[in-house]
Write a protein that binds this DNA or RNA. Structure first.
Length: 467
DNA sequence: GCATGATCATGC
DNA sequence: GCATGATCATGC
């Protein structure tokens, strides 16, 4: 037994008060000597050390909350700092493992998820590269309970995950399936950690419930009392989510009123007068349809890490453009595993597509769609990512240089994959990132910024045309 | 006409 | 200054 308890285990106020003393301290500040006298060897994670040496209980993996008497679960999570000094979550917050064989028997209100994670005590620390975890500074500490609105959405998410398990599709679960509560992969190498599922003989990846990174950012803003961003809600009263309606249905029904109308007509029907030359014209129109004021961000989409994409289709239904993602840094991508890659992370998100189509010189709203990529397509996209990494690591990037100076590369072309390709995405040829090793043909040590693109034909066939 | 490489323009 | 959405230009 560790006796370093400065709190009353039967009082949540006392526990929180004791926890808040951690602010602006590091693990070494708080319990350095004790850690050394107990032979701390650098193993174990931040949370386990805090539990053992500060709160004085042995880390466990039981289904009950850590502070059983008051039903509070302790969670620690890393922060990063933006250039403007605001805190953001470095990652999603991983909760308890989904026991496929048991959860299908549960109902949300009495579920193992809610029992263990309904009331959290959160300790956020500043994660810094190349610094010993004993020296990370703890910055934000507070309790967290979900608001009524959030809990309705989380319940829908939980039920969606359960439904998939009941249908024997645990192996097809994906983070992009849900809004705030995700089913994220969990295990040192996710490839190796497969589990049985109750209604299918196929093994399914081990997954845990998790709060989406965007949701954690809202918790952080809440705790830090940071209210710089202006948000507007789609769901103004939680009662709207009563009964069978999901947030998806509600959003889609708002758009359906305007299907087959031109952007201009929609604008007038909404009583707006937007600047059509503005780069954000379509984003503004989307927000207005959802009932938001100009300049507001969509709170629910932000919390759910939803990628909103407006796509313009030609008359024949082909998107005018491929869809781009952020550029990758050559030096970073070669040091990254697929499971930790930005590309995988973004492909696992939920997307909201708004399709406009050209018709007689006008753009009309054709349809909107929530979409996330299937597990099998994510694996196909991995092939493109693997090849890209291989090309950069080997230094065989440039294939030939035309007399005009135009350079042909070995990067995966559109014709090589149904799903994705790699192309430049830069201000101009001088807009470059450093290469980890010089290009074999030319010897250049930096190259024009590139990014992954979703093929226009994939967007048409798999997103626009399907069901 | 399409695929691929190159660049522009706006807004934060 | 840069990210992002959008578009242009060239060669097959």
């Amino acid at each position: 037994m560790y006796k370093k308890k400065g709190y009353d285990i039967s009082s949540s106020e006392s526990i929180t008060r004791y926890a808040k003393k951690l602010k602006d301290k590091s693990l070494r500040d708080i319990c350095g000597e004790e850690i050394e006298s107990h032979g701390y060897s650098g193993k174990g994670n931040f949370g386990q050390i805090l539990e053992k040496f500060y709160f004085g209980y042995e880390p466990n993996s039981v289904a009950e909350p850590d502070f059983l008497e008051v039903g509070i679960e302790l969670k620690t999570s890393p922060l990063k700092v933006l250039k403007n000094g605001e805190y953001r979550s470095k990652e999603r917050l991983v909760l308890n493992i989904i026991n496929y064989l048991e959860v299908h028997k549960e109902v949300f209100e009495t579920s193992s998820f809610l029992k263990k994670n309904g009331h959290l005590l959160l300790v956020f620390y500043l994660h810094e590269k190349d610094i010993n975890l004993l020296d990370y500074l703890i910055k934000l500490v507070d309790e967290w309970k979900y608001t009524k609105e959030d809990l309705k959405i989380i319940k829908h998410d939980w039920e969606f995950i359960n439904q998939k398990i009941k249908e024997g599709k645990a192996h097809e679960l994906s983070e992009g399936d849900t809004f705030y509560l995700g089913a994220c992969t969990k295990g040192s190498t996710a490839e190796k950690s497969y589990r049985k599922q109750p209604f299918n003989t196929k093994l399914a990846k081990q997954r845990a419930y998790s709060l989406k990174q965007g949701y954690v950012n809202h918790i952080i803003a809440n705790i830090a009392k940071d209210e710089t961003a202006v948000y507007g809600k789609i769901i103004k009263q939680p009662e709207i989510l009563e009964s069978y309606r999901s947030i998806e249905d509600i959003v889609v029904s708002k758009f359906q009123l305007y299907y087959d109308k031109t952007a201009n007509e929609i604008e007038h029907l909404l009583g707006l007068n937007l600047n059509q030359n503005s780069k954000s014209y379509f984003a503004n129109l989307t927000n207005a349809i959802l009932g938001l004021k100009l300049g507001q961000k969509i709170e629910e989409f932000d919390k759910a890490d939803i990628q909103v994409k407006t796509v313009r289709l030609r008359e024949d239904g082909m998107p005018k453009e491929h869809i781009s993602f952020p550029t990758f840094k050559y030096e970073e991508i070669v040091e990254t595993d697929w499971d930790d890659s930005d590309f995988k992370n973004i492909l696992e998100s939920k997307f909201f597509f708004v399709f406009y189509q050209l018709k007689g010189g006008n753009l009309i709203l054709r349809k909107v769609k929530f979409w996330n990529m299937s597990q099998s397509d994510i694996l196909e996209a991995k092939v493109v990512w693997d090849k890209t990494v291989e090309i950069i690591s080997s230094g065989n990037i440039i294939k030939e240089i035309h007399s005009t100076g135009r350079r042909m590369t070995y990067f995966p072309k559109q014709s090589e994959s149904r799903i994705s390709h790699v192309r430049p995405h830069a201000r101009n040829a001088a807009d470059t990132y450093n290469l980890p090793i010089p290009d074999k043909l030319t010897g250049v040590t930096a190259y024009t910024k590139h990014c992954f693109w979703l093929n226009a034909s994939y967007v048409r066939d798999e997103i626009f045309l399907k069901y």
